[in-house]
Design a binder for these strands. Sequence first.
DNA 1: GTATTTTTCGAAATGGGTTTCGTAAAAAGC
DNA 2: GCTTTTTACGAAACCCATTTCGAAAAATAC
Lengths: 343, 343
Amino acid sequence: MKRKLSLDDIAKHFKVSKSTVSKALNDSHEISAKTKAKIIAYAREHKYRPNLNAINLRKEPSQSVGVIIPNILNYFFAQVISGVEKVLNDRGYNMIACISNESYKKEVAITEMLRKGAISGLLVSLAEETGKLDNTDHFEPFLNKGIPVVMFDRVSSKLDCDKVTIDDTKAAYNATEHLIKSGCKRIAVVSLLGDLEISKLRINGYHQCLKDHNIDLDQSLIFEKLEKSFMEVEIRKLLSAGKVDAILGLEEEAGVTSLLTANSLGIKIPEELSIICFTNGILPKYVVPSLTSISQHGYHMGQRAAQQLVNRIEQSDPEKPFETEVIKTTMIERDSTIPLIKA
Amino acid sequence: MKRKLSLDDIAKHFKVSKSTVSKALNDSHEISAKTKAKIIAYAREHKYRPNLNAINLRKEPSQSVGVIIPNILNYFFAQVISGVEKVLNDRGYNMIACISNESYKKEVAITEMLRKGAISGLLVSLAEETGKLDNTDHFEPFLNKGIPVVMFDRVSSKLDCDKVTIDDTKAAYNATEHLIKSGCKRIAVVSLLGDLEISKLRINGYHQCLKDHNIDLDQSLIFEKLEKSFMEVEIRKLLSAGKVDAILGLEEEAGVTSLLTANSLGIKIPEELSIICFTNGILPKYVVPSLTSISQHGYHMGQRAAQQLVNRIEQSDPEKPFETEVIKTTMIERDSTIPLIKA
DNA sequence: GTATTTTTCGAAATGGGTTTCGTAAAAAGC
DNA sequence: GCTTTTTACGAAACCCATTTCGAAAAATAC
C-alpha cells in the first residue's frame, strides 16, 4: 500500500518544516542552495507529485462538466462537441470530453471516473450497446448527488432528466412522405442504429407515414439492426432483387453505403432509386450523386444541451421539472431524390 | 466582490457548526428534520455550491491532462483526439479537450483556464493564427512549473518540449516526386495552412524535389496562404488558365476543392490534371474520382503524443532531453493520380 | 424517579499544499 | 565590538468540505 508522497513526508525525512520543502520545490529565494538541492533531488528520486486538488483549493475554484459521446469520428458528434465546447467556454466551464466508443462497459467506466473527479454536470449521448441493454443505472448516482445530467440525441426514457433531441418520429415521417410524394412505393429502411430508442422512433415515423398513405407495411424491407461489416452485402442483395424504389437511411453511413452500392450496380439515382438519410454530415454533399439528408443541427444541439446543463447547475431549484427540448430538423434536398412540384 | 458561499458562512448565519451544515446538506440522519429543512432552503436560496477541490482533496487524487486542438470538425484532429483519449483513459487520466478554433486569443484564454485548473500535462496542436504570430509564450508557464507539454502535428520550433510530427518535408517531397514521375511538369501548390511551420516544411519538400529533378520553380504556381472564402475562385482562375498539370494540396480541403473545381470545368482527372493532397480524412475516398492522399495516421499520432506525455508525467527526470518523434506517412494512391509503372 | 437509549449537534482532525509573519543566526556596516 | 541588515527557516493560518468521536439533551424504559 504505497500512499502518495506528500510534503510532510519529505519534511519529516529531512527533519525540516513542510513550508521549507514547499519553498524549496518552488525554488524560493528564501531557501539556501544546499537545502534546495537536496530536497529537490530527493523529491525527484521519489517521484514526488503535488496533489493538484490541494493546490487548487487555494485558487479560484474552476468548474468542469463531463461530456460523454459514443464516437468522435462521427461528424455529427464532432459538431455537437463543437457547440458544447463553445457554450461551456463562454460560461467559464471546462469540458472533460469522454468517448464511450459505443460500449456499455466503457460508458460505465467513464461514469465511475467522473464520479471520482470533480464535475458539476454531465452531458450524455448513449452508446449503442447501452441502448440495447436499456440500462442507465450508472447515471443515477449523479442525479442523486444533485449533479445535473442532460442527455442529447440518443436519449433514454428510463432516465428522468433534461433532454435535447430532434423529433425523430416526425423527421422520419416527413422524409418518408417526401419519397412517397415523389412517386416511390416500396421504401426500404436501412440502419446501423440497432437497439437505440431513436431507431424505434424513426421507424415509427416511417410506419405512420405508410399507414397515412395507405401503403402496406412490408417487414422484409426493414433492416434496422444491420451490422457494419455485413451492411454492404445486405444492401447489395436488397438492391439486386430489384424490389425497392427508395431507401431511407436512419443514419448517414447506411445512406451513403446504399448510394455507393446502387452506383456500383448501375442503378440510376434518383430515377430508379431515391435515397434519403438522417444526419447531414460531410459526405452527403460530396458523394455522387449528392445525397438528400436530414440535418440534425449538431452544433446547435450541442449548444442547447450545454446551455440547459449550465442553467441547471447555476440555478439551484431542483424542483424545476425536467424538460425535453426538441430541435427542428431540416431536410436538405440534393440529387438523390426527385424534387416535388410545388402545388 | 462576492466571494463564494462556503459551509462556514452558512454555519455562521445559523449560529451552528459547519459540521452540522455539511451533514444537513448531505441529508444525514444525524440532523433533525427542521434543522435540515432550513439549512437546505437557505443553501438553495443563496446558490451554495461546494468547492469541488475541497471535496476531492479527501478522495483519491485524479489526474487530468489538457488537450488543445484547432478544430474538432477536422477529421484528422478527431482521429488524434480519439487516439489520445484511448491512451489517457487506459492509463487513468481524464482528458480535458479544448478547441482553439484556429484563434490565438482563444488559445491563450484556454491556457489561462488550464493554468487555474489542475492539469498534469498538456497536449497541443497550434492554431493557425498562433503559427502566424509565431508566439508560444503562453505555454512557457507550464514548462516552468514542471508541467510537461507535448506538441503534435502543428508544432513550433520556438518551444522546447517533446513533439510528435510527421516528416512534412519528406512527405511533400515524395508526393511531388510521384507527380513528376507520372509525367507532370507544372505542379501547383494550394493550401489553407497560412503561416504554420508545417506549411513551410511542406513547401520546402516541394522545392527540393523540383530542384532534384531540374524543374524550375515558378512562384506563380504557389498559393500557400489562401483564404477559405476565396480559395475556390483562386483555384478556378488557376485551372482556367490551363497552365498546370498537377496540384499538390497541403491539406485536405485544398485538395478536394481543386478536384471539384476541376470537375466543374470539365478537366479530366487524372489525364489532364493529377491531384495529391495531405491528410487522408473521409472525403478523399468518397469524392469522384477518388483522391490520392497522404495519410498522417492521426489515431496513431494521438496515441504516441499521449504516451509521450504520460511518460513525462510519471517519470520525474526533467533532465531527460526533449524528443521529436516522427510518424511515418503513407501515400494512399487513388484515382486522381496516374499509377507509376514499377521498374 | 432513576437508568438507559436515542437523537442531535459541535469540536477537532483530516486532506496537502501555499503563504504570511516572526525569529534566530549569520553577514555586513562603522 | 556593537549595531544593522540579510539570510534561512519554522510555526501557524488558510483554502473548504468531510468525518470521527465525544458530549449534551431528549426520549424511552423499568
